[in-house]
């Protein structure tokens, strides 16, 4: 276990750029992009003025938007992380060093998989929380420009903050577990073909879809295409988010979480994990048998 944790830490040290420095730069731009216009009197909140009931709802919507934005950022960076990290030892000529360590190839690839599903999302989650806190500052700015809107009550905002924070954890965990098979697929491909995993991750399914449609008669678009479209849909998440944004009252954490959990197809979720485990084991076996 100690060595596994150390390997996860190694992933953090090697790939922290996109998950630590990247979010810090974005946060810096966000802060500068709101503070500077406010200081020079060019902060414009009138887009929201006639659409939002009060600054608290503005705050919550801004936080939810930040959660959504950071989730998209996380998915994109994880895609590149898995395409890069699983072949990094080969590319950096460090394969022989890691093979001289008393850790199996399966353990090394599992540590990469784990880092991508725990440490890096945790860093992005921290960025989400900061964005949530900053949304409160932005709500105060809206109030300063439109004094008719009540200033967001700190306690109410804090209440929303932790509720939305908890919702974000559940949301993020479900999204990651849902896309785990995609990430494992990209990582396994990367083990074999390096960064070519990026185009091949889409090209291989596209070829399979094409072959199915050419040689087999099935439903419109084919079984594979419809299944992939279903996996990429995230309908279970978007409905829950929409329900909370459109309601006039504060975000209902219990309903939000229940909405998310009840709409997830758990059979598909478990099937995805099984696929992820199989491809990672196959990739580790490939890595065990090859040096170049």
């Amino acid at each position: 276990m100690k060595s596994f944790v150390a390997l996860v830490k190694r992933e953090y040290l090697e790939h922290r750029g996109a998950f630590l420095y990247g979010p810090l730069i974005i946060i810096g731009l966000l802060v500068a992009g709101t503070v500077m216009p406010f200081l020079v009197g060019r902060f414009r909140a009138d887009y929201f003025g006639d659409q939002i009931e009060g600054t608290l709802k503005f705050y919550e919507v801004a936080f939810i938007a930040a959660i959504g934005g950071w989730t998209i950022y996380l998915i994109i960076t994880l895609f590149f992380y898995y395409a890069d990290a699983f072949s990094a030892d080969k590319r950096n000529n460090a394969m022989l060093f890691w093979k001289s360590m008393p850790v199996s190839d399966l353990k090394i690839l599992s540590s990469k998989m784990t880092a991508g599903l725990t440490v890096f999302p945790a860093l992005v989650f921290a960025a989400m929380l900061f964005s949530g806190a900053w949304a409160y500052v932005m709500a105060l700015m809206v109030h300063a420009q439109f004094p008719l809107f009540a200033a967001p009550d700190f306690l109410a905002a804090f209440n929303s903050f932790w509720r939305l924070g908890l919702v974000a954890i559940v949301f993020l965990a479900l999204v990651l577990l849902w896309i785990a098979p995609l990430l494992a697929w990209v990582g396994a491909l990367s083990t074999v073909v390096g960064r070519w995993a990026m185009p091949l991750a889409a090209l291989i399914p596209a070829i399979l879809v094409l072959l199915e449609n050419v040689f087999f008669k099935g439903p419109d678009g084919g079984v594979i295409f419809n299944y992939l479209r279903y996996r990429a849909d995230f309908a279970w998440a978007s409905n829950a988010v929409r329900n909370q944004i459109l309601t006039l009252g504060p975000v209902d954490m219990v309903r939000f979480t229940a909405d998310l959990l009840s709409h997830v197809n758990w059979v598909q979720m478990v099937a995805g994990w099984a696929f992820a485990v199989v491809v990672i084991v196959l990739a580790s076996e490939y890595r065990r048998r090859t040096l170049d």
Binding site: K2, A6, L7, A94, F97, S100, M101, P102
Partner: peptide, 26 residues
């Protein structure tokens, strides 16, 4: 223990970080 290629040490690490990792891995 083996050295197959002296250039194979993980280049992204500092020496201190390498030793700390090895302490936990080996």
């Amino acid at each position: 223990a083996f050295i197959s290629d002296v250039a194979s040490l993980p280049r992204f690490l500092r020496v201190r970080e390498l030793f700390a990792l090895l302490t936990n891995i080996h």
